[in-house]
Amino acid sequence: MATKTDQTSHVDLYDSFSNAVPKNAGLHALLLFTVGIIATPLILALIFSTQSLYEIYTITDLMPGSEGFSNYVELFTEWNFLTYMINSFIMASIIVTGKIIFSICAATAIVYYDFPYKDAVFFLILMTLMFPLKIRIVPLFELMAVLNWSNSIWAITIPYISSATTVFLLRQYFLSIPDSYVETARLDGVGPLKFLVYVVLPMAKGFLVGVGVIRFIGAWNQYLWPLVVINDQSEQVVQVGVRNLQQAAQSGFTDWSLIMAGSIVALLPPLIILIIFHRPLLDTMTMQQK
């Protein structure tokens, strides 16, 4: 019995090997090539971040450099990176939480309640997609000044808390929940809020996590608006902090290795979140494709 199984598995292995190589070799080469292209900047950044100023200007030198972790240590000791990271994390967390809470409320109202001009309201929400931050930046700056929010965490979070995309995604998700669930609840006398808390949200848990991850990465990568509205370095976020590293020039040469180290550090939190939550994120993506 055992021998037989072994034989079969050998044959299977041989079959799969001989099948895979000639048929898919081209495809695999292409995949490897594209993955390589996508990964190259990251790998280079990782290598450069360990090099010294001299090494990095030697273009041909693509080996890990002599500085080791010292660039990384410098970020935290001399360039205020711990504060930046904490600020970024607080900002991203507030934005994600706010976005999800507000969007849930808006999507619930749009899907489960009847009110006059419902479609017009939803259309108006979608219209805001046509006004990205760059268009609003001057009036928004003035508004922050009037509210006395400039230079504070409020300035970099509150303007982002509403999100047409998230409302739209949640609306689509809520609409995909069969009517009979809603109707069963109605027959049982379960109110809309109870239905939301006990039925819709538990069902949407994975979806919400997925949306949250996308939103977190988006929020973490905010650059232009914090750059404009925050002057105080103790309130600044990490993406602007990376740009500040350009000041670390030595005799006219920009210290690229330090900037690369800063970029890698700034990349880590979203990467970790992505790795932890990749499963619900992928589910969310596939649902969007449907």
């Binding site: 069969p178 009979s180 669930y181 109707e183 069963t184 109605r186 027959l187 049982d188 006398g189």
Partner: peptide, 15 residues
């Protein structure tokens, strides 16, 4: 309202 009618319903997709 539905709950005041004291009816119960079974749906095709079970719900």
């Amino acid at each position: 309202e539905p709950p005041e009618r004291n009816v119960a319903m079974v749906f095709q997709n079970y719900a």
